[in-house]
Amino acid sequence: MKNLFSLSGKVAVVTGGSRGLGAMIARGLVENGVKTYISARNKEELNATAKELNTLGECIAVVADLSTLAGIEEFAKTLNSHESKLDILVNNAGAAWGAPFADFPEQGWDKVMNLNAKSPFFVTQKLLPLLSASASSDRPARVINIASINGINNPRTNNYSYAASKAAVIQMTRHLAADLVKDHININAIAPGFFLSKLTKYLVNDQEALFAKKMVPKERLGQAEDIAGTAIYLSSQASSWMTGHTLVLDGGVIASSGYGEL
């Protein structure tokens, strides 16, 4: 059992891999011997992350706009031109939008739902042949969808489309896992709580220790090792019998029945 968490020699894709949780996951995979493709729209930022990760292993940048079906199809075409199989797909690309309910715009709904809920469905669909080429009954391919505790609990903020999209990701994970289990593709999700990223920086407001003590039972924010370690588990033989589930990674927020006082 000493190799239960070994990922050496595998091939992975991490969407939204240039920063935040995506970059944390990509780093964990690269450091564990995984040839990792990362995608994002910002070419300069993406290439900078790939350059950094290439000092640790093998990382390839692919510029892509996954908010449209055309962009997803072009992304899949690029991957197919480089790889004959894919072991791990991490659907992480996402966006958020906040506005009062009475003023919440259609643009803020459509932009977030397209990237957070529609994109992982069609990225998985278009990369299914590559995943199937890797999959077997004893070594299933893996899809990891990045959800959020906002899709489980009332976030008590006005990010309506974000919360709805992440709830959709959790249900989509269950649905697709059941449909693709006979294809030997395990599909699970991670629902992160508070990690310091572009999406949460406005909440933390440069007072990380105070915010964490007030909002998180374990009194700290999530760290790179937390999200990377969970993704490694879901990518490894250790989780080969697990599919259709969402792992809550939040320092005890959901278990403690919600957030602290805002």
Rank of each mutant, 00 (worst) to 15 (best):
Leu69Phe: 15
Met1Ile: 03
His82Glu: 14
Ser67Thr: 14
Asn32Ser: 15
Pro192Arg: 02
Ser67Tyr: 11
Ala189Asn: 13
Met24Thr: 09
Leu221Gly: 07
Lys201Glu: 15
Val30Trp: 08
Leu89Tyr: 08
Leu46Glu: 00
Ser235Ala: 15
Glu44Phe: 10
Val63Cys: 03
Gly22Ala: 10
Leu210Ile: 13
Lys201Asn: 12
Thr55Leu: 09
Ala224Met: 07
Gly98Thr: 14
Arg142Phe: 07
Leu247Trp: 10
Ser81Trp: 00
Asn145Phe: 02
Ala95Asp: 15
Leu249Arg: 13
Ala61Asp: 02
Gly193His: 04
Ala255Arg: 07
Tyr202Leu: 00
Ile227Val: 09
Ser137Pro: 02
Pro192Gln: 05
Ala255Phe: 12
Val216Asp: 03
Ser257Tyr: 03
Ser8Cys: 13
Ala167Gln: 01
Asn42Ala: 04
Leu262His: 14
Ile149Glu: 01
Val34Tyr: 09
Phe122Cys: 04
Ala163Thr: 08
Ser134Asp: 10
Leu69Thr: 15
Ile185Tyr: 10
Leu127His: 03
Ala70Phe: 06
Ser256Val: 04
Ala76Tyr: 00
Gly229Gln: 07
Ser240His: 10
Gly260Cys: 13
Ser6Thr: 09
Ser39Phe: 12
Ser165Leu: 04
Asp110Cys: 05
Asn80Ser: 13
Arg142Ile: 05
Thr157Ala: 15
Ile170Glu: 08
Glu74Lys: 13
Pro129Met: 05
Ser235Val: 10
Asn42Asp: 14
Asp183Tyr: 00
Asp206Pro: 00
Asp103Thr: 15
Gly244Val: 12
